[in-house]
Design a protein around this nucleic acid. Sequence first.
DNA 1: ACCGATTTGTGCGTATGTATG
DNA 2: GCATACATACGCACAAATCGG
Lengths: 222, 222
Amino acid sequence: MNHRGRGARALEQRVVDVIHARGLRPGMALPTEPQLVELLGASRNSVREAVRALQALGIVEIRHGYGTFVGDASLSGLSTSLAFRVRAGVGAIQDLVEVRELLETGLIGTVATDGLSTARLAELDELVAMMAVDSEADRAFHALLYADCGNELVLRLIELFWDTYHEVEHVLGEPAERTEATVGNHRRILDAVRAKDPAAARAAMQKHFAEVRTRIAQATET
Amino acid sequence: MNHRGRGARALEQRVVDVIHARGLRPGMALPTEPQLVELLGASRNSVREAVRALQALGIVEIRHGYGTFVGDASLSGLSTSLAFRVRAGVGAIQDLVEVRELLETGLIGTVATDGLSTARLAELDELVAMMAVDSEADRAFHALLYADCGNELVLRLIELFWDTYHEVEHVLGEPAERTEATVGNHRRILDAVRAKDPAAARAAMQKHFAEVRTRIAQATET
DNA sequence: ACCGATTTGTGCGTATGTATG
DNA sequence: GCATACATACGCACAAATCGG
């Protein structure tokens, strides 16, 4: 047994340790490859592979011919991993929607309790109106609904799941028509938020996702 | 000279394409490095860097001296990315815990409604008993609680957020003692599930996370 | 328990493309 | 345009790990 742990992953961690030890912030430059080779006592290949792995996780950002910089660890790694997962798995689409439902039904309760500004409500009204003809309005609606919840992570996650869902929806399913039912569901959600009625908001959200699920079930059966 | 597309990311995608094209399922072997070199027309180092990036995302699993295999995209490798994000100040620990709370309070309702087998309940009883002395029992409890929910994705996500939380907890805070209050909260959750009382289960879960949040608030103030 | 084949891990050298000054 | 520094890519050789005979 190596007291250093598995060689491959150990190097990645040591690069991260260098970042933390030097107090490097996102956007700042890492030591150059020769410097990392000298610091970590490993060959160029090993260092490069470790840095490449960290790039896949969004921890560092490599710019050709310029240098390696600290990244912001965006959720792009989760995105590609999820995309692979839904293509490999069978029931993965339902799982994806169920996660969205868990997050959004929970969040809509707090949003409805706290309430939204009249300006924000007006923006959402407009998005609902456009939803019948513009599929992008749907995404914008869900994003804007939780924009003020103060949780950046859950915002990114909802956007990420939404994007992944629509990628695979287009690949493996029919183009979902923006039916009157969909628009009506979103309007009910918005009305409940405007009335500051958390229970009604949750119920409307559940009804919305229930219809999404049935639409998926129909598409996957064919 | 080289093929089109950005060298690094393009190779990763092409390796993934090979997996999809051959219908490789998780656990099955990828072509060997020399074969990938032949298939993709790239050097061995480039292929290795691409595969290492995929390993960081859990898409493939590399076993020294044996081969490279399709991974299950367990998302466990992404905990370092999320942990880095939190430590870099991009996201907050509270956000992380809030996402866990949203997922688990939503899930525990369905679990309590459907009920669990007596065998599963006995296992959970045992984990609660061990929780006072074994911190790993806490993770196992939350994992086992939703093991039968039929949603593999949400399971992995809960594991991911739990691992990330405990990584940053160890780095930036004191080792959290398994207090009697923690054990009691988990017992209350379990009792509510046994009684098939969704409302009580959700309430117990919220109480659990409320105490986690206060513990975080105390740690971040110091 | 050893051997040998296979596969991944590591190290080194060199050439090329790219951004900065 | 030129020079410098850097990342990128390629090729080769050897070490380490695993499996099956």
